[in-house]
């Protein structure tokens, strides 16, 4: 656990050193702020004291930002060869992957913490459903963790960051949108299966303020599977064909 923390700390530091973290924070807060307060179906037009408009904006902005953060995690280390130096230290492949995963989750958590003034502002305008808002944040964090694990997996497949980015967006889009759209077009077991696979179904049910164990199982198994696949693809260097 200690080793994971050391790796996560270094990764987080490098996001701040390379300006990546600042760019993400400015863009994320800029976009979500614009759409929550000033433009489109914002808080004043919907005339509801809730953060639903923020959550639906963040649902999309995070979807595009996360692959940009995860794309270099393993791809660049493989390209520059630093992965060799890292893995010959007294750490396991798993610790390296979990450390990288944790660092990006922390970065997203930091971004979400900066939106707490939104919550305080809306709460001061009128009565707000505290439970639903809190769960909305939990939902965003779970969704982010899911795409982070996916991004780390795609980053483990290639030496090319752009390929990792596009692959992550492509696979992510299936769960983010496509399965949901398809589910509406099918009935019966296929429709249900697609709805279950769709990440948006689970995200919406959480952000409505209902935390079902089914949703939690979905996110946790998605994350576990992706991180496990990433570990396998890192271990491929050991395979003798």
């Amino acid at each position: 656990m200690f080793k994971i923390w050391i790796i996560a700390q270094r990764e987080l530091q490098s996001f701040f050193d390379s300006l990546m973290a600042y760019i993400l924070l400015v863009l994320f807060l800029g976009f979500s702020g614009l759409f929550t307060w000033l433009y489109g179906a914002d808080v004043f037009i919907s005339r509801q004291t809730s953060l639903r408009s923020f959550f639906s904006i963040a649902y999309w902005t995070l979807f595009f930002f996360i692959p940009a953060l995860t794309m270099k995690s393993l791809a660049e280390e493989r390209k520059t060869g630093t992965i060799e130096l890292l893995l010959t230290k007294a750490v396991t492949d798993r610790q390296v992957i979990l450390g990288k995963f944790l660092s990006i989750v922390m970065l997203i958590a930091i971004a979400l913490v900066f939106t707490l003034p939104y919550y305080l502002t809306v709460a001061s305008i009128g009565p707000i459903d505290h439970g639903a808002t809190l769960l909305g944040y939990v939902g965003l964090l779970l969704m982010s963790a899911t795409y982070i694990s996916l991004g780390i997996y795609t980053s483990s497949l290639t030496n090319n960051q752009i390929v990792a980015f596009l692959l992550s967006i492509f696979i992510g889009l299936l769960f983010h949108l496509v399965f949901d759209v398809l589910a509406a077009n099918f009935t019966g077991i296929v429709g249900e299966l697609l709805a279950t696979l769709s990440l948006s179904t689970h995200f919406e049910s959480i952000s409505r303020g209902v935390m079902d164990s089914k949703d939690l199982v979905y996110f946790i198994s998605f994350i576990t599977l992706c991180l496990f696949l990433a570990e396998i693809s890192l271990a491929k260097r050991n395979v003798i064909k």
Binding site: K3, I6, I7, R10, Q13, S14, D17, S18, T80, G81, T82, E84, L85, L86, K89, A90, V91
Partner: peptide
């Protein structure tokens, strides 16, 4: 291969902690 965006001293501290 080294992390080019890290300071020498930070990098050495990182390696020491990992080892």
């Amino acid at each position: 291969p080294l992390y080019h965006d890290m300071q020498v001293i930070d990098y050495l501290e990182f390696c020491a902690a990992l080892q």
